[in-house]
C-alpha cells in the first residue's frame, strides 16, 4: 500500500482525492465531536455536584487526610499482587502438571477460592484463623496461637493475594496454552528439557499474552483492597467513611474517594499500555 503511494502519488485521480479528503474530514469531525461529548459529560457531572450543593470546601480540607490512606492502599495492593503472581505461576504449573498430587492441589485451590466470596475469605484469615491456632495449641503445639493470629495488614495481603492468585492461575494457564505447539517442538528439537523450554521459550511469550488480563486484575485489586478497611486499616475508603460519618457528609467523602480511586486506575492503565507496547517489540513490522 505505502509503496504504491510513494512511487506514484501523481497518478491518483482527482475524484479519488476528494473521497480521501472526505474520509479525513469525517475522522477529524468524529474526534472533535467526541471531545465535545466528553466535555458535556464532565460539565453535567460538575453541575450535578453544584445542584446537590456539594461542600467543596469541606472536601478540600480533608483531601490531605484522605490521601495519606493511599499509602496503605498501594502497600496492600502491591504486596498482594506480588503474592498472587507467585501463586498463579505455581498454580498454573500445577494445573498443567502430569503429577496427580500437584494437579489435584492446584485444581482444588482454584475451585475453592473462586467458589467463595472474597469477603468471607477476608474474615476467615483475620477472625477464624486464630481459632485454628488455638486448637493446635491445645493439641500441644507451642506458639501456634501467636503464629495464626494475624495483624490486619498481613491478613489482608494474604486474603487478597490468595484470592487473586486463584483467578490469575487460570489466566496464566491460558497464557501458557496459547503458545503454539511448534514453539515447544522447536525447543525440544534443540535438546531443551521441559524446564528450559518453559523458562526460555514459553514463559517470555506467555507473559506478553497475560500482561493485559493481569493488569486488569491489579486494577480490580486496588479497589478490592478497600476490604481491609473491615479490619480497621486506615486506608483510603476507611478514612473517607469515618470522616463522612463523623460530620454527616458522607456524600462529599465518598465522591472524593471514588475520584481518587478513578485517577489511580487511569494512571495504572496508562502504565499498562506502556508495558504492553514494550512487550510487543517482537511483533512490530514497522519501526
Amino acid at each position: 500500500m505505502s509503496d504504491l503511494a510513494d512511487t506514484a502519488p501523481d497518478t491518483i485521480p482527482q475524484e479519488a482525492i476528494r473521497v480521501l479528503d472526505r474520509i479525513d474530514q469525517d475522522r477529524k469531525r468524529f474526534k472533535v465531536n467526541l471531545t465535545i461529548a466528553f466535555a458535556v459529560l464532565l460539565a453535567g457531572l460538575l453541575s450535578g455536584f453544584m445542584i446537590i450543593r456539594l461542600d467543596f470546601k469541606f472536601m478540600f480540607n480533608w483531601l490531605g487526610f484522605i490521601m495519606t490512606g493511599i499509602g496503605y492502599t498501594l502497600l496492600v495492593s502491591f504486596l498482594a499482587i506480588t503474592l498472587a503472581c507467585i501463586l498463579a505461576v505455581i498454580g498454573a504449573l500445577g494445573r498443567l502438571s502430569g503429577n496427580p498430587i500437584a494437579n489435584s492441589m492446584a485444581t482444588a485451590y482454584v475451585s475453592l477460592i473462586r467458589g467463595t466470596p472474597l469477603l468471607v475469605q477476608v474474615y476467615m484469615w483475620y477472625l477464624a484463623l486464630p481459632q485454628v491456632g488455638k486448637a493446635l495449641e491445645e493439641l500441644g503445639l507451642q506458639g501456634m496461637q501467636y503464629v495464626f493470629t494475624l495483624p490486619a495488614i498481613p491478613a489482608g495481603v494474604l486474603a487478597l493475594g490468595v484470592c487473586y492468585g486463584a483467578y490469575m492461575t487460570e489466566t496464566v494457564r491460558a497464557g501458557i496454552q496459547s503458545i503454539k505447539i511448534g514453539q515447544t517442538e522447536a525447543a525440544k528439537a534443540l535438546g531443551m528439557t521441559r524446564r528450559q523450554t518453559l523458562r526460555r521459550v514459553i514463559f517470555p511469550q506467555a507473559l506478553r499474552v497475560i500482561i493485559p488480563p493481569v493488569s486488569n486484575e491489579f486494577i480490580a485489586m486496588i479497589k478490592d483492597s478497600s476490604l481491609v478497611s473491615l479490619m480497621g486499616v486506615w486506608e483510603l475508603s476507611y478514612r473517607a467513611i469515618k470522616i463522612g460519618r463523623r460530620y454527616f457528609q458522607s456524600l462529599e467523602m465518598l465522591i472524593m474517594v471514588a475520584l481518587i480511586y478513578w485517577v489511580m486506575c487511569i494512571i495504572l492503565q496508562s502504565v499498562q499500555e506502556r508495558i504492553e507496547s514494550h512487550m510487543a517489540r517482537g511483533d512490530r513490522r514497522v519501526s
Binding site: K180, G182, Q183, E185, A186, A187, K188, A189, L190, G191, T193, V201, P204, Q205, R208, G282, D283
Partner: peptide, 21 residues
C-alpha cells in the same frame, strides 16, 4: 532422548523461530 536431539537438528515447515528473540 536429549542426547539424540542434540545430534539431530530439525527444521520445520512453519520455521518455529522464537518470536521474542
Amino acid at each position: 532422548i536429549l542426547q539424540i536431539r542434540k545430534k539431530a537438528g530439525m527444521c520445520f515447515q512453519s520455521f518455529n523461530l522464537f518470536p521474542h528473540m
